[in-house]
Design a protein around this nucleic acid. Structure first.
Lengths: 196, 196, 196, 196
DNA sequence: TATGAATGAGCGTTCATTCAT
DNA sequence: TATGAATGAACGCTCATTCAT
C-alpha cells in the first residue's frame, strides 16, 4: 500500500472522526479496529500508535463529540453582560439537531445507533448541568429570575428537552422553538414580560 | 452434573434475572453467555432454548426491567376519580430508587453499569411519555391545570427528573421530594393553591 | 404435543424418508436431528430409538436410496430366458431420471445437494457393477456378445452413463435413448444386427 | 509461539495442501480449522486471512486438486500435430494413480476419504469432458475415427474409467493398460488398425 | 511513522446425545 | 413408545493486539 505520512495530530483526529462515524452507525461491538483502519485507508496497527486500546478510542470519541456539542452552548451561556433571557435566545439552539456540522445532525438522521445516541445525549446533559446551574444562580442573584430549587430547575431545564428532541414526529425547527418557549416560561422569562 | 429440570417459564425468568444482573454489573460486552450460564449453574446451550441470541436476551432484559419499573407508575397515574395532584402524590415515587424490589435499587447501588442504567432510564421515560401526556390532557380539559404545550410539558415532567435522579450526592428520599415539589409547581398545583 | 404412536416399522420408514429428503436438499452438515424431528412432528429423542446416531441414520439413507434405485434395474437384468439385448431394452431405464417415484427425479430437480447426488450415483454404480459383469459373462458364454475384458466393459457400460446423466442440457427421455443406443452399439448388439 | 512470516502466496498454498490432506484423510466434518492450523503450526485465525470460511477453503481444495490432476491430461490431449491415437498414448495416464506427485497417489493409498475421492474424481471428469469432446470432434472431422454420438462417446470414454480406477483389486499399471486398450478399441483405434 | 502478517484468547452458537418423566 | 428440557463438547469465527520489517 502507498504509505502516506501525516502530522500526528491530523492522523489522530482522522482516526477519531472516522471511528466516531462507525461507532455511531454500527455500534461499538459491530465496529472493529480493522473496519476503522480500512475506512481511513491505513493499517490497523497504526491506530495503536494513537490510542492504546479500542476502549480508550471509544471513550475518546464519546468525550470528543459530547464536548463538541456542548462547547458552543456553554460559551453562549457564559457570555458576560447578558441576561439569562438574552443568553437563551443566543444559545446555538440547545442540542441542535439541524446544523449539519453537529453530531446530532449526523446521527439523528441515521437508522441504528439508538443506544449510542442516548448515551451521547446523556453525556451532553451532564456537561451542561453545572453550567446551567451556575447561570441560574447568577440570574437569580441579580433578580432576573426567582426560583427556589436551583438544582431541580437546572435538571428540568436540561433533561426536560430530551423527550422533545427524541420525538421523531417533529421537525427540528419546531423542536427548538417549543423548547425555547417552554424554558422561558418555566423560568418566568416569557415574551410578555420581556417587552417591558 | 446433576440435571435439574424446571418449568420453562421459571427457567426463562431465571435466565432473565441473572443476565440482567450481570449485564448491569459488567456491561453487555464483558458479559458472556457462559458467565450467565455458570452463575445459574446450567449449561450455556440452555440459554439458547429460551433466547435465540445474546442480543435478543439483552433487549429482553431491557424491555422487562423498564416494564417492571414503569408499570406501577402507569397504574397509579391511570387511576380513575383522582385529580392529577392526587395521582402525583400517589405515584410510587417517580423512577423510584429506594424500593429494594425495583430495578433502580439494585442498579443504582452498584458501580459500573452506568451505560445500562442510562439506557433503562431512557426506556422508562419513553414508556411514561404517552401516559403522562394523556393525564395532562385530561387534567387540562377538566380545568385542573392550564398549559399550552402538552407535549413539551410532558417531556419536561418526565425527562426533567433524570438529572436529579442521577445525582450521586442526594439521598433517595430527598430526590423524590424535590422532584414532586417541582412538578407540582411546574403544573401550578403547588401546596399553597391546593389548600384552597 | 399430541402423542401419536405408530408401528415401529412405519416410524422407522418415516424417519428414513424425511431425513433422506432433508439430507438431499440441504446436505448432511446443514441438516440437524432437530430439523428432521420437527419436520415429522416428533421429538428429537425419538430418532434415537430407531437409529443409534446421526451417522448411522445417514448411511442408512444412502444405502436405502441406492438400493431403491438399483433394485428394479438388477431385477430386470437378472431375468431368466432373456437375451442381454432384451434385458437392456427391458431395464427400467438406467439411472432413471424421469420416473417421479425414483430418487433421481426428486433430487435432480433440486438445486443444491450436488455432492450428495454424486455420492448416491457412485453408490448405485457400485451396486450395478457386479450384476452387469455377471450378465455380460453370461451373454458372452452364450455367444450373444464377444468381448475380451469383462470388467472394463462392465465399468464403461455403467460409469460411462454418468456424464450423460449429469448433463444439464439434455431432456431425460433423450438421455435414456442415447445411452441405450450407445450401449447396444458398444456391445455389438445394434439395431441393425438385431433384425436378423 | 515463535512468529514465522511467509510470503502470502506460500502461506496460502501451505494451508491449501495441509487442509487437502486432512480433508481427504478424515473427511470434511471431522476436520476442524483448528486441526489444520495445528498441523501447520500456526494460529487458526491465520486461515481466515486466506480463506473466508471453512466451506470456501474446502471448495478451493476440491478445485485446486481437480485442476492439478486435469491440467497435464488436458495439455497432452490438446497437443497439435498429433493423432488422437498418439495423444491417448501420450496422455500422462488417465486419472493417474501411480505418480507420487499426483493427488490420486496420495489419496488412493489412504483409508477413508472415500467420499472426497469420489467428489474429486467427478470434478476431474467434468473438467475433461469438454476437452475430450473437442478432440473427438477433431479426430472425427479428420477421418481418424467414425462415431455418431460425440457426447455419449466422450462421456463413456471419461466416466467409464471410474469403475476400473476405483477397483481395489487391480494394480495401478494394469488399470492404466486395460483402460487404454479399451479406449482404443472403443474408438476403433485398436493396435491392429494402427499398424497399417 | 507505517505496514500487515500473525497471534491467541475467547465468544456466540450449534447440536448430537442423554435422561427424567 | 414418546417427550423435550438439559447437557457438554466442540466448532467456526472474530478481533484486539503484537511485532518483525
Amino acid at each position: 500500500m502507498i504509505r502516506i505520512t501525516k502530522k500526528p495530530e491530523d492522523r489522530k483526529q482522522e482516526i477519531l472522526d472516522t471511528s466516531a462515524e462507525l461507532f455511531y452507525t454500527q455500534g461499538y461491538d459491530k465496529t472493529s479496529i480493522s473496519d476503522i483502519a480500512k475506512k481511513i485507508g491505513v493499517s490497523q496497527g497504526l491506530c495503536y500508535r494513537y490510542f492504546s486500546s479500542k476502549e480508550e478510542l471509544f471513550s475518546s470519541v464519546l468525550e470528543y463529540y459530547a464536548e463538541m456539542q456542548a462547547k458552543p452552548m456553554i460559551s453562549a451561556l457564559s457570555e458576560q453582560d447578558k441576561t439569562l433571557r438574552q443568553k437563551l435566545y443566543g444559545t446555538p439552539t440547545f442540542l441542535d439537531t439541524e446544523n449539519p456540522d453537529t453530531y446530532y445532525y449526523k446521527i439523528c438522521h441515521q437508522a441504528s445507533g439508538k443506544a449510542m445516541h442516548d448515551l451521547v445525549s446523556m453525556k451532553i446533559c451532564q456537561k451542561l448541568f453545572p453550567v446551567i446551574k451556575k447561570q441560574l444562580k447568577k440570574a437569580s442573584d441579580q433578580g432576573e429570575i426567582a426560583i427556589s430549587d436551583l438544582e431541580a430547575t437546572a435538571s428540568f431545564c436540561i433533561y426536560g428537552q430530551l423527550g422533545i428532541l427524541l420525538h421523531p414526529d417533529l421537525a427540528g425547527k419546531e423542536k427548538i422553538e417549543r423548547i425555547r418557549e417552554f424554558l422561558l416560561n418555566l423560568l418566568g422569562l416569557d415574551t410578555v414580560e420581556s417587552t417591558l
